[in-house]
């Protein structure tokens, strides 16, 4: 297993370099260092000298990819690409273009993001798996039919509608929780409850349908018939046998998203005024803040790779036949 993990980590290095390279190229196709300087300095009364000074101070006066004026390794290292990327691989994200420490910003935003994402994920998983098992249990009945209709209806509605509708009903009409905002610590509950509920409800449709399909496929297998023939109750069959054997496809979709929970949700955080990571990248793109964009893309890539590795590990836990060899 250790060798496998080491191999996966080594694979990750070229992936991360590639992601960084693509991010860099895409960013600078759209934004030149001059544009970045203008965005930071404002558009009023900015002189060309001020722009040059800003670039020089932040190292954007160097060539982007290759420095033909430099000698030796300087051809590659004395460039914006190297200067802005190398330290990231040792966990130093540096400062945003407005001078603020990126690692600190990420650390302070991660908590609020998790406060929404984690309960949404756990409760959502519990509710959707339970509902899918329920539908599978009542398969081919009126309950199953209307349950699927409800799922299709739920998944057909835009996420934005859930948010605006939820805010309208729960916060505006019924005045049960604040419409937006956030507080640290235990006081967070009244701000978190609505976005979590909306996150759970908006995710039910697609997930429950997907899990139902998986469960129905399992239910048709011989071992289930054998279990029933042994006289086990339907609940025992579903929870002890069907659910366990359906775990691999469920884990494929679920475990990989666990690390990405740290990245937050753009829409929810924006509408509910949650100061999380969801909007950090978008704000940075709008502000042409390359330092933040590259850091967030890098972290996203690392988390995704971690998610994939965790998924592989989880396979071995639920299915002893899976081996890393």
């Amino acid at each position: 297993m250790l060798a496998y993990l080491l191999r996966r980590l080594l694979y990750a290095i070229p992936i991360l370099i590639g992601v960084n390279l693509i991010t860099f190229a895409l960013f600078f196709v759209v934004n030149t260092p001059d544009d970045m300087a203008r965005m930071q300095l404002g558009v009023k009364r900015v002189t060309p000298e001020a722009i040059e000074k800003w670039k020089a101070e932040r190292g954007y006066d160097k060539p982007l990819f290759i420095n033909s004026q430099a000698q030796g390794t300087g051809v590659f290292t004395d460039t914006v690409l190297f200067a802005k990327s190398a330290r990231m691989f040792v966990g130093d994200f540096g400062r945003a273009e407005d001078g603020r420490d990126i690692a600190r910003e990420i650390a302070s935003r991660m908590g609020p993001s998790l406060a929404i994402a984690l309960p949404t994920f756990i409760i959502g998983l519990f509710v959707t798996v339970s509902l899918a098992l329920l539908l599978a249990f009542f398969r081919a009945s009126a309950l199953d039919f209307w349950g699927v209709v409800l799922c299709v209806a739920l998944m057909s509605i835009s996420g934005l509608f859930y948010i605006i509708g939820g805010q309208y009903l729960v916060s505006k009409l019924w005045r049960l929780v604040p419409i937006s905002g956030y507080a640290a610590g235990l006081d967070a509950w009244k701000f978190v409850i609505l976005p979590v509920a909306i996150g759970v409800v908006s995710g039910i449709g697609s997930s429950a349908r997907w899990y139902r399909t998986i469960f129905l496929e399992e239910i048709a297998k011989d071992y289930v018939r054998t279990a029933r023939a042994k006289g086990l109750s339907e609940l025992t069959v579903l929870f002890r046998h069907v659910l366990r054997n359906a775990m691999i496809p469920i884990l494929t979709g679920v475990v990989v998203v666990i690390p990405l929970l740290f990245m937050g949700s753009l829409l929810s955080e924006s509408f509910f005024g949650i100061p999380g990571l969801g909007s950090y990248t978008i704000d940075a793109i709008n502000a042409q803040d390359f330092a933040v964009v590259r850091a967030m893309v890098f972290i996203g890539s690392v988390l995704y790779i971690v998610g994939l590795v965790l998924t592989d590990i989880s396979y071995t836990l639920v299915d002893p036949r899976v081996r890393f060899e």
Partner: peptide, 18 residues
């Protein structure tokens, strides 16, 4: 000063007196 990125919550909180 609270940060409100969207106009809907901003407006409704004003109407609620917040």
């Amino acid at each position: 000063f609270s940060r409100e990125k969207e106009s809907i919550p901003y407006w409704n909180k004003f109407l609620q007196g917040y």
